[in-house]
Amino acid sequence: MGPSIVIVDDHPAIVDGVRAWCAAAEPPIRVLAAGASPGVALAGTGAEADVVVFDLQLDGAPAFRALTTLADAGRRVVVYSQHADSDTALRCLELGAATYLTKAEGPEHLIPAVQAVVDDLPYTPPVLGGAMAADRHPDRPVLSEREREVLLAWFESDSKQLVAQRFHLSAKTVDTYINRVRIKYADVGRPATTKAALVARALQDGLIDLAGL
């Protein structure tokens, strides 16, 4: 069975277009639900989708709070937005999005992005690549606050289960956060496939110090 998505977008034409692109993908991507409210991704069949395709512009304003809610729930979110500025793209990564695309980038990037995110692989479309290159620290991944919290707690713990208990999360959600961090490091050319490698990266980037360890 192929990957699945839920679409959060308040433009029917966009939803219809994404549905058509998903049906034509190989393998086809199943659209389990769609709606104009982020709630469609948190309940019912939408909560079972592998990936949330999320329109940042809901009700006329950037829905950063809704993005945070989805990311904190452990959902893999592909932001699909009309905004093409670097600040918005980087902020979405900080809030926990798996990747960021503009609607101008179309199916040639949206479909590969969904396929990559389902497999916990990095995907950097042109606009996001430009945003990261313009960042003052292009080789340092942008981690959300919760990603940093979970990562540091894992460094201090013997198991992910203990981290899950500490933050009242499921072990699967803890895994999702740590995998996101791995993806972000791989995306900037600094892979960290083991816990020791992640500790080294965190030391290099000042997230922790030797005294903290």
Results as ranks from 00 to 15, higher is better:
residue 1 M to Q: 13
residue 1 M to P: 12
residue 2 G to H: 02
residue 4 S to D: 08
residue 6 V to S: 08
residue 7 I to P: 00
residue 7 I to Y: 14
residue 10 D to M: 13
residue 12 P to M: 11
residue 13 A to P: 04
residue 20 A to G: 11
residue 20 A to E: 15
residue 21 W to N: 14
residue 21 W to A: 15
residue 24 A to T: 12
residue 27 P to V: 04
residue 27 P to Q: 03
residue 29 I to C: 01
residue 30 R to H: 12
residue 31 V to N: 00
residue 32 L to G: 11
residue 35 G to R: 11
residue 41 A to G: 15
residue 45 T to I: 07
residue 49 A to R: 02
residue 50 D to S: 12
residue 50 D to M: 08
residue 51 V to C: 00
residue 53 V to C: 13
residue 53 V to R: 07
residue 53 V to M: 06
residue 55 D to G: 08
residue 56 L to K: 06
residue 58 L to R: 04
residue 59 D to G: 01
residue 61 A to I: 14
residue 61 A to Y: 14
residue 65 R to Y: 10
residue 66 A to M: 10
residue 67 L to E: 14
residue 71 A to C: 11
residue 72 D to E: 14
residue 73 A to P: 05
residue 74 G to F: 07
residue 75 R to L: 14
residue 77 V to A: 03
residue 79 V to P: 02
residue 83 H to C: 02
residue 83 H to P: 01
residue 84 A to Y: 01
residue 87 D to E: 13
residue 89 A to I: 01
residue 93 L to I: 03
residue 94 E to M: 10
residue 95 L to T: 11
residue 98 A to M: 03
residue 98 A to D: 07
residue 99 T to C: 10
residue 99 T to H: 03
residue 99 T to L: 05
residue 100 Y to Q: 02
residue 101 L to V: 07
residue 101 L to W: 12
residue 103 K to A: 08
residue 104 A to Y: 00
residue 108 E to N: 11
residue 109 H to P: 05
residue 110 L to M: 06
residue 110 L to Y: 09
residue 112 P to N: 07
residue 112 P to V: 03
residue 113 A to M: 02
residue 113 A to G: 04
residue 114 V to F: 05
residue 120 D to A: 12
residue 124 T to P: 03
residue 125 P to F: 02
residue 128 L to Y: 05
residue 130 G to Q: 10
residue 132 M to H: 05
residue 135 D to N: 11
residue 138 P to L: 08
residue 139 D to M: 09
residue 140 R to W: 15
residue 141 P to V: 07
residue 141 P to G: 08
residue 142 V to G: 00
residue 143 L to Y: 09
residue 147 E to F: 06
residue 149 E to G: 03
residue 150 V to R: 07
residue 151 L to V: 07
residue 151 L to W: 11
residue 151 L to Y: 07
residue 156 E to H: 07
residue 157 S to F: 03
residue 158 D to V: 02
residue 161 Q to F: 05
residue 162 L to N: 13
residue 163 V to A: 10
residue 165 Q to E: 15
residue 168 H to L: 10
residue 169 L to S: 04
residue 175 D to W: 01
residue 176 T to A: 14
residue 176 T to E: 14
residue 178 I to A: 00
residue 181 V to W: 00
residue 184 K to T: 05
residue 186 A to V: 04
residue 187 D to T: 04
residue 188 V to Q: 11
residue 189 G to F: 06
residue 190 R to Q: 15
residue 191 P to D: 10
residue 195 K to Q: 11
residue 197 A to D: 15
residue 198 L to N: 13
residue 198 L to M: 15
residue 201 R to E: 13
residue 202 A to G: 03
residue 208 I to P: 05
residue 209 D to F: 01
residue 209 D to W: 04
residue 210 L to K: 06
residue 212 G to I: 00
residue 213 L to I: 06
